[in-house]
């Protein structure tokens, strides 16, 4: 049976969907900020000379890249409390998942960008008497950061969409709210269409901002 869209009453659900949007944004923003810091640390750890730091970074990156986000979410929400002995609130767990997950991918982006800078830049800095850290800070990082922006934008968008999987650990984000409404009002098609528009609004805004940024920085 093919029915028709029934948008009647959709406005009434908007407040609930905006609550979902709030959590989606909260987890995305906080998760990605922490993920960016993790990515910076482990990305540099991946190319560090110290073996032990190197191994820790590789293990972290490969563990995360090798398992689905869904599994990571379930594991952190349900399994981790068994180890640490206390429960983690679902929103906190969601932030941890997004941070850990994006951190691993961002680490690879950071590593790639730093390694893509011509080795002559490091040599030029060192030959002037700058030490390794100074050369990284004033010469390598600023150039690498510019190159990181396009792949970072990509990762941000992926991570934002990954938050939709967090409904399985009861994070009250967009999908969670949508499913709740749809179950009670039998309007899954209209609700999920609206939810899709919400996601698009976030990702398109981000794309636009990134594009402006790339143009300004002349990448």
């Amino acid at each position: 049976m093919i029915g028709r869209f029934n948008w009647a009453g959709m406005v009434d659900f908007l407040p609930q969907l905006f609550t979902g949007l709030y959590y989606t944004l909260l987890i995305s923003v906080v998760g990605l900020i922490i993920g960016f810091i993790l990515g910076g640390i482990f990305g540099l750890g991946r190319i560090a000379k110290a073996k032990i730091i190197n191994i820790i970074s590789v293990v972290y990156i490969e563990m995360i890249r090798g398992t689905p986000v869904l599994v990571q979410a379930i594991w952190i929400y349900y399994a981790l409390p068994l180890i640490i002995g206390f429960e983690i609130e679902s929103v906190t767990a969601g932030i941890i998942v997004i941070a850990l997950n994006s951190g691993a991918y961002i680490a690879e982006i950071v590593r790639g960008a730093v390694q893509s800078i011509d080795s002559g830049q490091m040599e030029a800095g060192r030959s002037l008497g700058l030490n390794h850290n100074q050369t990284m800070r004033y010469i390598i990082w600023p150039q690498a950061f510019k190159r990181m922006i396009p792949p970072l934008g990509n990762q941000f968008i992926i991570s934002i969409k990954d938050t939709s999987l967090l409904s399985v650990i009861l994070v009250p984000e967009l999908i969670f709210q949508g499913r709740l409404i749809a179950a009670n009002h039998f309007n899954a098609v209209e609700i999920y269409t609206t939810v899709a528009v919400f996601y698009l609004a976030i990702t398109l805004t981000l794309s636009f901002v990134l594009q402006r940024m790339e143009r300004r920085l002349d990448i």
């Binding site: 011509d118 030029a124 800095g125 030959s127 002037l128 008497g129 600023p142």
Partner: peptide, 20 residues
Amino acid sequence: INMVRTEVGMVFQQFNLFPH
């Protein structure tokens, strides 16, 4: 070594100027 390098200037085949 950083101190020594301040006394010894170097010019590279590929210039290696800082493009940023």
